[in-house]
Design a binder for these strands. Sequence first.
DNA 1: GAAAATGATTAAAC
DNA 2: GTTTAATCATTTTC
Length: 351
Amino acid sequence: MDDQPRLMHAHAAVGMSGHPGLSQHIQDNTGATDGDGRKQDIGDILQQIMTITDQSLDEAQARKHALNCHRMKPALFNVLCDVKEKTVLSIRGAQEEESPDAQLMRLDNMLLAEGVSGPEKGGGAAAAAAAAAASAGVGADNATEHSDYRAKLTQIRQIYHTELEKYEQACNEFTTHVMNLLREQSRTRPISPKEIERMVNIIHRKFSSIQMQLKQSTCEAFMILRSRFLDARRKRRNFNKQATEILNEYFYSHLSNPYPSEEAKEELAKKCSITMSQHGTTCLLVSNWFGNKRIRYKKNIGKFQEEANIYAARTAVSAASVSAHGSQTNSPSTPNSAADVTLWEMSFVSK
DNA sequence: GAAAATGATTAAAC
DNA sequence: GTTTAATCATTTTC
């Protein structure tokens, strides 16, 4: 501890000779002329600053006040700020990397597009829900699922906004607190406004990285919600009995070639009151049904034999009644009897 | 509650 | 683009 005064004098001397701006500052701020007197002044100030922590609170307060009023104080602080700026802060400044704005923008855009953030609900959220409901292609009870979806979306929005607000408030409070602290400290140690600004930036970056995490998890929550809602497999509905009968009737009466054309599919979909798929011009549901039926029939003809006989008999009866009335055939192709081995069946029965 | 049935999805082949 | 074959996920049946 005995070294301190010597050290401070040495510092002051180095400051004088090593920093070209110091004498200038002092000239500017004090107008002093006596070189030795100035050295003595600076040495005194520095010594007082360094020993201030060793003193009692009252003493220190008094000393702080005296220092603040010292005529050399502004000049000395300016120089020290300059030195700090040119060494530590400039190095640190150079190392500061670019903030990941791109990702933040991506998240912001997504939240905006999905209606989680932004002005008010009704835009993206409703559109997404409507699209989801439409592509799910369901009928009766989609209203409840729809509102369920909307309620959950609102919940996500609410959590997001309250959390965001909390973070913003905390950020502001913390920034104000730190700024006040630094301003207060700048009375006793050299802190430039630039340094305060830099500190504020650091705080903002930290908080915005937290906000980014919030945005990320909100996006994830929304994606999960939507995928649940959109996943058609989760909301599979069996066709009603009538629809199944219509499809089976077509299938067994076209066993030689159970591949309905686009028109036939649309016709069948209409007959079965199946809403058209959003995926294209074909009725995907009918295509799915025929795809499944073909493969399952082919895999186990025996199991479907009884069903085949029933439908064959039914079509035979209707064909007979039609011919009995002398009408023309209203079927695009000749119905097959279940006993017949059809062309289509031939292709896989004979391996 | 397990098994069967069934609609949807997928990759691969055409 | 469609179809097949395998598979998944749900609903229905027992």
